[in-house]
Simulated assay, not measured.
Amino acid sequence: MNRVVAGVVGLTVGVAVLVGCSDDKGEPAPSPAAGQSQVSTSGSTEVKVGGSDLPGLDLNSVTCVKQGGKINVASAAINGQAGLAVVMSDANPPAVESLGLTVDGNALAVTNTMGAKVGSAEVKVDGSTYTITGEASGADIKNPMAGMINKPFSITVTCN
């Protein structure tokens, strides 16, 4: 059972990072005036795991992209590992489809797809500021058989 859970968590983190960090083959993103995508890196961004700032995360690298009915929040890598990746529906209210982050060598995730539910997340919107809170679950990358790890998180990002 632990192998299945570790596999699902690893797959979820990988998918979230790929979707959240994809750059559409290097082509420039359409301007917000085109109505196809909106990219935001401004505003106050905060990412906390277990009540503390996510170690190694450069808050200036966190971006928010609205495109194709999705809201993607992503960051640069942390110490050579996946940083932060969130995929939400651009609905009212938005819902987290997948979330992946790496904390102290642990791959943590939230997902409710492919018949598997891992972790939990809730989104609150105040204007263009999104606050995502919940509990991410995962496994130690170096020892995935050690059992599940659960950590509370809070992410606040502005997405114009």
Rank of each mutant, 00 (worst) to 15 (best):
S31K: 12
S31M: 12
S31T: 15
P32S: 04
A33E: 15
A34N: 13
Q36D: 12
S37Y: 00
S37F: 00
Q38V: 15
S40F: 06
S40H: 09
T41N: 11
T41M: 10
S42I: 10
G43Q: 05
G43S: 03
S44A: 14
S44C: 10
T45N: 08
T45L: 07
T45C: 10
T45D: 07
E46N: 13
E46R: 13
E46L: 15
V47A: 06
V49H: 03
V49C: 04
G50M: 07
G50R: 08
G50I: 08
G51W: 04
S52Y: 11
S52I: 13
S52M: 12
D53I: 07
D53Q: 14
L54A: 01
G56K: 04
L57G: 03
N60S: 14
S61L: 02
S61W: 02
C64W: 01
C64K: 05
K66F: 05
Q67P: 06
Q67G: 08
G68S: 15
G68C: 10
G68T: 12
G69I: 02
K70R: 13
K70C: 02
V73N: 01
A74W: 01
A74H: 05
S75H: 05
S75A: 06
S75P: 05
S75K: 06
A76M: 09
A76W: 00
A77P: 10
A77V: 11
I78F: 02
N79I: 08
N79C: 07
G80Y: 04
G80Q: 02
A82N: 11
A82G: 13
A82Y: 07
G83N: 03
G83Q: 00
G83D: 02
G83Y: 01
L84A: 02
A85H: 01
A85P: 03
V86T: 00
M88S: 00
D90Y: 03
D90L: 04
A91N: 11
A91I: 05
N92T: 14
N92V: 10
P94S: 06
S98I: 11
S98T: 12
L99R: 00
G100C: 07
T102V: 11
D104G: 10
D104T: 11
D104A: 14
G105M: 07
G105F: 08
N106S: 15
N106G: 10
N106T: 14
A107I: 09
A107E: 10
L108K: 09
A109R: 08
V110H: 05
T111C: 07
T111N: 08
T111I: 10
N112G: 15
N112C: 09
N112H: 14
N112W: 08
N112L: 07
N112V: 09
M114H: 14
M114F: 15
M114S: 12
M114G: 10
A116Q: 13
A116I: 11
K117M: 15
K117W: 10
